[in-house]
Amino acid sequence: MAIQRVASKWEKTKALHKKEHISLYIPETRKYSIDQMQEMLDTYELVYIKPDRGTYGIGVMCADIWRDDIDEDAEPKFRLQFGTQSEIHPNIESLHQSIEEKIGTKPYLIQKGISLLTYKRRKFDIRALVQKTPNNTWETTAFIGRIAAPHRIVTNHHSGGSVLPIEDLLGPYLTPSQFLELYKEMKNLGVHVASELSRKYPRLKEIGLDLAIDEQYHIWILEVNTKPALFPFKWLQDKSIYKKVRRYAVAYGRLKSAK
């Protein structure tokens, strides 16, 4: 039986919102429209605009309220960032028009922006891999930190991002005991998310959970990928982690066993 994949970010978000202990980790997310963008910028001042269906961070944009550092009396404007480019718009209508030109008729979502922790002034997030075990239970088997390339708003490898162990990224911020608590919370969250999604999508065998850590060390779920890349975990120094990842993936049919 084929492994189930779910493309729509909106459908996955709706499924996870049914459980309060998971919804606390989900940034406010709505279907994109100019009215929704106006409301969310008024509330959060930073939003991400992303395709409902898509991978590798392609098509993701970021909008925020931009203030002139030189002329403090100037009216706030709106900044749109995409790829390595940015635009300044005088009003919400101009901002929306530019976004519409880029997205066309594709359905997009708008999500509360998270002020991510940084590594050498570059934003990073964390990919958690959650897999079905040979005993048919869920386990969070691996983590890897993903660092955005300079001047990029997404951390994906395909957009020039790089990877590091999460210990290297979180170590400067947390004591060993704080790190252990956060690590346990992320592991448990991975299992809860996979378990809840599998209620609606019973043929799920694996998920990639993209997690953001904000400046108060709160964990946020940015996205759930139902066909996560496995190769980045090969780069971890602890080779036993990828061995387990591979063993589980062979057991549920994602990978073929080595001959």
Rank of each mutant, 00 (worst) to 15 (best):
S162Y: 05
E139C: 04
V60M: 10
I58N: 14
K244M: 05
A7S: 09
E139Y: 01
A74I: 04
Y242T: 12
S159L: 01
R254M: 14
A229F: 03
Y248I: 08
K227W: 01
A148N: 09
I88F: 02
I3S: 10
T141M: 08
V193Y: 10
H151N: 15
N156C: 04
K256C: 07
Y25N: 07
T133E: 12
F143P: 07
P202N: 06
R5P: 00
L182K: 14
I110P: 10
K187L: 08
T175H: 03
I103R: 08
H218Q: 15
H89N: 14
G171Y: 09
C62N: 12
L129A: 04
G57S: 03
K120T: 12
E28C: 01
Y108L: 07
T13P: 06
I103L: 11
I114A: 03
E181N: 12
K12A: 12
G171E: 15
L41N: 01
E28N: 11
S177I: 02
L46I: 15
L209S: 04
M40L: 05
K123V: 11
G57D: 09
H96E: 07
Y252H: 15
S94C: 04
P165L: 08
I88S: 03
N91K: 07
D125G: 06
E185D: 15
I114K: 04
I213Q: 01
Q36C: 00
I207V: 14
N91Y: 02
E39C: 08
V47M: 04
P165C: 04
V245D: 03
Q81R: 15
I221M: 03
A148F: 06
R53H: 04
Y248G: 08
H21K: 15
D210T: 05
A63I: 03
K227R: 15
T29A: 11
R203C: 01
E206M: 08
T29D: 04
E196G: 03
S159D: 01
I153C: 09
D52Y: 07
G54M: 10
D210V: 13
K239V: 06
Y44P: 02
L174P: 05
K123L: 10
Y56N: 15
Q131K: 06
V250A: 00
A2Y: 05
K187C: 12
L95C: 04
T155N: 12
L46S: 12
I166N: 11
S198K: 13
Q85R: 03
Y217G: 06
Y44H: 07
E72Q: 08
A194V: 02
V154I: 13
M1E: 13
D73P: 07
T13M: 12
W138I: 05
L41T: 05
G113P: 10
I147G: 06
Y25C: 02
E101L: 04
D68L: 02
D210P: 10
L236K: 14
M40D: 01
G161K: 13
T84A: 09
R203L: 13
L174C: 09
L169N: 08
I70T: 11
I207W: 09
R121V: 03
D73A: 12
P202A: 09
T43M: 10
E181F: 03
W138V: 10
P27C: 01
L80V: 05
L46D: 14
P90T: 10
R79F: 02
Y56F: 15
